[in-house]
Design a protein around this nucleic acid. Structure first.
Length: 552
RNA sequence: GCCCCCGUAGCUCAGUGGAUAGAGCAUCCCCCUCCUAAGGGGAGGGUCACACGUUCGAUUCGUGUCGGGGGCACCA
């Protein structure tokens, strides 16, 4: 419909202003229904070059518009806006589109089956997942679903930093617990992890348990002098715990990548050699530096430390080189905002390699901190202090659907306050129930009607003319744009907001009219409309990974 | 000091180069003999942090100031 109007306006513009060639027609959906279904500021834009009054130009544009069966009325408003009022028939079309397309409605092929990777969560295996990881999980998974709906070939990936200093820290923390040293004791590692789960790992290690995580199986030796065994067991134990966290959150990854594997396969070393060869490195003070300042960084960065070890961004560059070599034309890294400083470095390293990687590759979506409130006070998240709100606690307390919705429904780049008491004690206020309730109500009506739902696609829709109905149809027709925009903006919260509005339209409609009525023609028309609404609610909830419940 | 994000109703948050800036919660009023009241309708509540600039038009874009958060290691 938008394309149709754009064409009409382009035709009209050529007639009244043939000399202007690079004109972009802007059509928007006015906020208020009084201003029609679409509005354009074309006359205002043309006012300056044509040196005429915008309202006069608007009149000329309307006269020059080709006739269209979909336009019921046009009017000039305000400073010179042209408002279009569509005919009821043109709005009803969307119902048939939806009922015929079903789960496909709203999907498009913008991605053209190109390979995109979404890397998210990527928590260190040093503790259970907490709320911040939950935000990354919810946002990342929704991004993946959105890209899929836009025709991309999506891979979900989780990267484990299982090779750095924090793993040594984990190992000595577990060792200390194996020796029975309390977290308060002075001989407990100063920066050690003090969470209760460290004690659990120590106990399991001493009991020679076997743990299975994604692709590994490790049996503890139970020997506290065997640091390698403690290390391997602890990592496997925590990876297993994180697997359970993700399972509880109903998130599945296609690929788990290990930092340690980048060393064992020689990819880190290859990357270092390639960087040296590129001429962007130099030795200084017994360390190897990368001239990241050549690529916009404010200072150069150490690659190889004096002690011979690599800094963390070297395996990061190796990892992203590997991603590139695996054929991902697009990579989106969903991370906490505290990773901000790595972006420039990783991109600089990839540019230095000069292997054809585009400048802005990879993309980043950074989510801001989650503040957790309990009892009116902020709960400090500290793995080391052991004060903790785990993702699994949260899911158990407020439910998977509500947690996912809550964490994905806000813009990633604004800070989020998660009030546990509110989420738990007043969980009915959570908007996710409002949306699910709209879906359940429709299911209930359709089930009481008892007719053949597939026949609704053939219903005569002409009776649908009330304000509530046109508003609902209008909303339904916006869904494909929402799917498109949310993916373009990498902003899943746009879907959540849309669904809230759609549910609101449905609830208003539901309260205003009865559906199961005597008038057969009107009944079928209305049932078609709510059936289409049900489909769109379901499609949208699916993008968020939230269940479309049939009963509440 | 430098870099990034944010500042919108009492609270939590949407939103937009354009017409009267929205929702939920909270407060107040109304609506089930009727398809799920986990709902609907209405009222009150705003200097869109502040200033200057760009523009026909700025809450939206730019610059600066002030506030909040996060980064600025030979940690990850």
């Amino acid at each position: 419909m938008k394309t149709h109007l754009t064409q009409l306006l382009t035709t009209a513009a050529k007639i009244i202003a043939p000399e202007i060639t690079d004109l972009t027609i802007i059509l928007e959906r006015p906020k208020s229904a009084e201003h029609g279904d679409f509005a354009t500021n074309l006359a205002l834009v043309l006012a300056k070059p044509l040196k005429q009054n915008p309202r006069a130009i608007a009149t000329q544009i309307i006269e020059a518009l080709p006739v269209s069966e979909y336009i019921a009325k046009t009017e000039i408003a305000g400073a010179g806006f042209i408002n279009f009022f569509l005919s009821p028939q043109s709005k009803q079309v969307v119902i048939k589109d939806i009922l015929n397309a079903g789960a496909q409605y709203g999907r498009n092929n913008n991605g053209n089956h190109q390979k995109v990777q979404v890397e998210f969560v990527s928590a260190n295996p040093t503790g259970p997942l907490h709320v911040g990881h939950g935000r990354g999980a919810a946002v990342g998974d929704c991004l993946a679903r959105l890209l899929d709906a836009n025709g991309w070939d999506v891979t979900r990936e989780f990267y484990y930093n299982d090779a750095g200093a924090q793993i040594d820290n984990l190992t000595i923390s577990v060792l200390a617990r194996c020796k029975g040293i309390s977290t308060e004791h002075e001989s407990f590692p100063e920066n050690g992890y003090r969470g209760e789960y460290i004690n659990d790992i120590a106990a399991a290690f001493l009991a020679k348990h076997t743990v299975v995580a994604d692709d590994i199986e490790v049996t503890a030796s139970g020997d506290i002098n065997d640091l390698n065994s403690i290390r391997a067991f602890s990592v496997a134990y925590l990876r297993h715990e994180q697997d359970l966290d993700l399972k509880a959150f109903q998130i599945k990854f296609d690929v788990f990548s290990l930092e340690s594997a980048l060393y064992t396969t020689g990819k880190v070393e290859q990357t270092v050699q390639a960087l040296i060869k590129s001429g962007h490195t130099y030795e200084d003070n017994d360390a190897l530096w990368l001239k990241t300042t050549d690529f916009g960084d404010d200072k150069d960065r150490v690659m190889r430390k004096t002690d011979g070890g690599y800094t963390y961004f070297v395996p990061d560059v190796a990892y992203h080189t590997d991603k590139w070599n695996r054929g991902f034309v697009r990579v989106i890294n969903e991370q906490g905002a505290d990773h901000h400083s790595t972006i420039t470095r990783v991109r600089a390293g990839l540019q230095a390699l000069d292997i054809g990687i585009p400048k802005g590759w990879p993309d980043y979506v950074l989510h801001q901190m989650v503040t957790v409130m309990r009892g009116g006070e902020e709960v400090k998240l500290s793995k080391r202090a052991g004060s903790y709100v785990t993702l699994r606690d949260l899911i158990e307390e407020v439910g998977c659907d509500a947690t996912r919705y809550f964490l994905a429904a806000r813009r990633a780049d604004s800070q989020l306050v998660f009030d546990i008491d509110l989420a738990r004690s007043q969980s009915n206020d959570n908007p996710v129930y409002y949306i699910q309730y709209a879906h359940a109500r429709i299911c209930s009506v359709l089930s009481q009607w008892g007719g053949d739902i597939s026949s609704l696609a053939n219903a005569n829709l002409n009776p649908l003319v009330t304000a509530h109905e046109t508003a609902l149809m209008q909303r339904l027709s916006e869904y494909p744009e929402v799917v498109d925009n949310a993916a373009t903006e990498l902003a899943p919260h746009m879907v959540a907001n849309y669904l809230k509005e759609l549910a609101s339209d449905l609830h208003s409609y539901y309260n205003e009219y009865k559906f199961l009525i005597e008038d057969e023609s009107l009944k079928l028309a209305r049932l078609s409309l709510i059936s289409a609404t049900q489909q769109v609610l379901k499609n949208g909830l699916d993008l968020l990974g939230v269940a479309a419940k049939e009963r509440m």
